[in-house]
């Protein structure tokens, strides 16, 4: 293995290096696109508020996955533990953040706190 993947000096970029470079270029391209669209949607308010919020959320999630994939190089080919950790942390975040919003929202409703603007 070691011999096969040995980077061959300073001269020509190897196949592996070109692949790694492309990963970053693809990543930044996709990320830019996924950033620009929601900003434009909000700036010029093309769609009503509720679908707009959903769209923002979806774009954010996809962009996060893009960052994980192309910048942090998380994939299915490597040891699964990194991906598993992300998924476990995500599960905990969903439980804790979701639970908090559920609980505090219910409390606000029942305690007649001022509604959301």
């Amino acid at each position: 293995m070691a011999q096969v993947h040995e980077a061959d000096g300073q001269t020509e970029p190897s196949e592996e290096e070109r692949r790694d470079f492309r990963s970053y270029v693809r990543g930044i391209g996709l990320a830019l696109l996924l950033t620009l669209v929601p900003f434009a949607l909000v700036r010029w308010a093309w769609i009503p508020r509720f679908p707009l919020l959903i769209a923002i959320g979806v774009f954010a999630l996809v962009q996060m996955i893009v960052h994980f994939r192309f910048f942090l190089h998380i994939g299915f080919r490597q040891k699964r533990e990194d991906l598993q950790l992300i998924l476990f942390s995500t599960l905990l975040l969903i439980i804790l953040v979701g639970g908090t919003i559920w609980i505090m929202g219910s409390l606000a409703l029942r305690m007649a706190m001022p509604p959301q603007p």
Partner: peptide
Amino acid sequence: MFGFWLFLMSDAVLFGMVFSTYVASLS
């Protein structure tokens, strides 16, 4: 790197907590 990755996950929960504070305090 594995250890640092664990730290980042722990940090993610830290951010999750302040996010939930923020969302719960919007009004």
